[in-house]
Amino acid sequence: MNRREFTKAALLGAVAAGLPIASFAQGSRTIAVMFDSLQSPFWISSFDAFKAEIAERGWTMLENISNLDDSRQFQQVQSMIERGVDGIVIVQTDANAVIPAIRAANAAGIPMVHYNRPPAESDAKSVAVQADNRTIMRDTVTALVEEAKKQGGKYKAALLIGDLGDQNAIARRDGFFDVVDQNTDTVEVVARIATEWNADVAFAGLTNALQANPDINFLVTSSDFLHPQIEQALKVAGKWHKRGEEGHVLFAGFDGDEGGYARLADGYLDAVGVQNVFFEVDLTLNALQDMWDGKEVDDLLLDPGFVITPYNFEEKRDEMWGYLVWKSQNG
């Protein structure tokens, strides 16, 4: 093969490689699903749920992951607008930085739905689907405080806080303090650990907090994806014990992923605030459908979520998305 033949073959190959993608994009509706990362089971499960539900509806999905880069995500939104998608589902990193992207979608007449994270307030029009983070966290911490009161004694608490650029992290933090501030006779907060939604940062922060306050016996995490790091830090501190065992740390999580389910089932976790992934995905796609149909859609659609504890475990676990993931992984 000479150089000219090689060049021709390479070009033909490149064109042929693109054809399946071109034909794939011929669905009735094309949705851009734009996440900022797939860094936790919640986001992975959500992403998979979107893929499945979009295919179920006979639509086509184009995916874009921004790798936590706001500028890149803005460019991705512009690309999807130029591509002529019918709707955009977005998970932004920063509530403020997404506003220009909403404006761009507004100008192009393309409906945009924020999945699980609302944007900051602005004049730009979009719909947000969100778990009622503050209420779910409030209910979760209430369940933990009730357990503490049942067992008696005073508790030293640590809270793992998420990235404060994320409205959900702020709401979960506020939900935690709504309860503990009313129960200072039982719970004293000795550590607020900023995790920036980063597992390594969380591990280092919790390890330091446990060294500075070895009597921590009440722990709440703003996301279940941090469970492996929390387990490791508690093990190192000699505090990883099941309910009923001496030295058990009262422990609550948030999200309801498979790790949360497994630890709750094994007796290490006392309460989990659950976001309903499948409900939120449905809510998101239904919102797009309603906007295409010209119906009025509220700016904020709430997933009420629920709290699962050892007391309602059997009754509630089938509604917990993490249980379904766990079941599919473990037969």
Binding site: N67, L68, D69, D70, F74, D94, N96, A97, P100, G165
Partner: peptide, 12 residues
């Protein structure tokens, strides 16, 4: 362009 001042601007 982002109408935002952010400490993680273009961190990647």
């Amino acid at each position: 362009r982002l109408e935002t001042g952010t400490p993680v601007l273009s961190q990647n």
